[in-house]
Design a protein around this nucleic acid. Structure first.
Lengths: 343, 343
DNA sequence: GGGACAGATGCAACCGATTGCATGACTTTT
DNA sequence: AAAAGTCATGCAATCGGTTGCATCTGTCCC
């Protein structure tokens, strides 16, 4: 543990007999510095194991070259692929990421926002927590002109660029597919309907029904927190309905899988007695039996778009429109859980 | 976008007619400052919306109050619960986390290490990538006396505190259970055997066999990358063995689930024809049919231990032993996939 | 009354990189 | 040959918080 002292530009300056200013410019490839000096400096910097002191630089520059990301949960294929997509763009532009997750709690989300604000991120990317209804934790960013981009879980009420999938269209596709399979009584199991993603999927469901001339039946709607226990409860509730629904659109794969399992234990057959469509194309969709028909959307692509937008905003402040919404399409992946006609 | 200027201690100092030094001390609750002054300063700071400038502080203090975490993948229950455990300890001690993930790639792991080193984290917590065999990216930390703690995926060869589960014991329990169910030919599907976790699980397997007087059969060992395709291939290989194994110990739940599914498609019954035990207690273990018997280990607890150790090292440098290994126990969770006797 | 001492506050020098402006050397133009 | 221009480099202030040491005020005691 022999605490080697850090090398600074002053050390390099002394060694090559130049001023720190020249060393700083040489390392930054400043045009006013001669090629010879640059070579000498960079060579020596490498030899001495120089590492730039970000604090000094940040303090002087008032920028951190860091982007904060706030997500509700890390434990999801979708989220991690969005992050990977963001990363692919931001690292190319020499920006770093700080990832904070809220465990779906508004309290933690607000705390994370404060923390990232104190860390002085240059930009913020956020997907809202399950129960976030208050958005004052974003106002400090707005006030300081720090760009904020929301993705997936957004709130239409607040300003900022938003990147989302067309949840309504996805919901429409899911239910349209079930209708084509001959289903008529379609249960809808979903998360907090105040959150745009769930509200829009429901709208899509209803629009598909309307297009087929079927009335929406409020008693088939189940709103819960998508936890394992809630999924089991939802399954029991479905089984108890008279008559039982002939299909269920569950807006989350894990919840759908648990529902299916619980129903199967009761001897109910899928898809014969009840068809299922999920949402997200999580790994469980492939594992559950029968395979779960679901909505797939390209997280990586979404991340790239989010990242590109953020970098644009950071490199050309004031140029890009601040309040646009970018909507991506998604695909229905058909597996056994919904195929009544082919059984 | 009206770029409000930031409040500094100098602004506060001017407002209360004191020196910046006194303001700094007052905000830090320094004992030399009178209660009255402290009250006045903190009140005004709150009113003006003062936020401390971490760079200035870090620059002066040569500490960042930040801990870096490097993991192979975020998309795992286990990893995210470990992170949550670490977080619970570190936030209480006023430390922040930066999470970097390597996507199981050594190249990215090394890049992340460099990046965290440049960010000057005060400590580093790491679980190694799948293919990491070179450890020179950790030497800069050692050289500067920055504490490094490894967890789960570790390497016995390198110095540093390590927190692991007893993989050998877990492997022993898994195979012992299969033997108790009457299995005699147990296949072993696993990841890179250079990685401690997989090597140790295999050792446990072999020890359990030895204890039962059964010889280890090398032809039943399959080492792969645990991907979906590799899992399918492994299942085909198992089905093709003559005679077919009567059990499989697969050291990863997702891989086990895919194997089971592939075999079932071939008409092979689980557990009657072949029993399965997995590893990790991932969400798929509950979803696959029959439910997957697996090894559960407490990620959150592991995270708390890792975090506590790190904080101890940071607060009392040189006091804690640097090269200890902490081993946690794990539990066998029995589900249908291994219960031959009760079928 | 004066010395000793505790308590509260200020001075000024850091920490390391950046940058507008000035300077000096050297070349080109008229 | 003098004026103008080009190129490379240095000076010194700046970003905002921290801290060893000095200073000042007031109290206590002999």
């Amino acid at each position: 543990m022999e605490q080697t002292k850090d090398i600074t530009i002053y050390d390099i300056a002394k060694a090559v007999d130049l001023s720190p200013a020249t060393v700083s410019r040489a390392l930054k490839d400043h045009p006013a510095i001669s090629k010879k000096t640059k070579d000498k400096v960079t060579k020596l910097a490498a030899e001495l194991g120089y590492r730039a002191n970000n604090f000094a630089s940040n303090l002087r520059m008032q920028r951190t070259h860091t982007i904060g990301i706030m997500v509700h949960e890390l434990n999801s294929n979708f989220i991690t692929s969005v992050i990977a997509g963001i990363e692919s763009v931001t690292t190319a532009a020499q920006y770093d990421l700080i990832i904070a997750h809220s465990s779906e709690s508004y309290i933690k989300e607000a705390a994370n926002a404060r923390n990232l604000f104190h860390k002085r991120v240059d930009g913020l990317i956020a997907s809202l927590a399950y129960d976030t209804t208050d958005f004052t934790h974003f106002t400090p960013f707005e006030r300081k002109g720090i760009p904020v981009i929301y993705f997936d879980r957004v709130e239409t009420g607040i300003a900022g660029t938003k990147v989302v999938i067309d949840n309504e269209e996805a919901g429409f596709k899911a239910v349209e597919h079930l209708l084509q399979q001959g289903c008529k009584r379609i249960a809808h199991v979903t998360g907090n309907l105040k959150r745009n993603v769930y509200a829009d999927r429901l709208k899509g469901h209803q629009r598909a029904l309307a297009a087929a001339g079927i009335n929406w039946n409020q008693s088939l709607l189940m709103e819960n927190d998508l936890s394992e226990q809630a999924s089991i409860d939802a399954a029991h509730a479905i089984a108890a309905m008279q008559p039982m629904p002939d299909a269920a659109f569950v807006t989350n794969d894990f919840c759908a899988a648990i529902c299916m399992q619980t129903l199967k234990e009761k001897g109910i057959r899928i898809p014969q007695d009840i068809a299922f469509v999920g949402f997200n194309n999580d790994s469980v969709a492939k594992i559950v039996e029968p395979g779960l028909t679901t909505i797939h959307y390209a997280g990586f692509e979404m991340g790239k778009i989010v990242g590109k937008n953020m970098i644009d905003r950071l490199l050309h402040p004031g140029q890009s429109p601040i309040d646009t919404t970018i909507t991506l399409q998604s695909d229905l992946i058909v597996r056994g859980s919904s195929l009544k006609k082919m059984v």
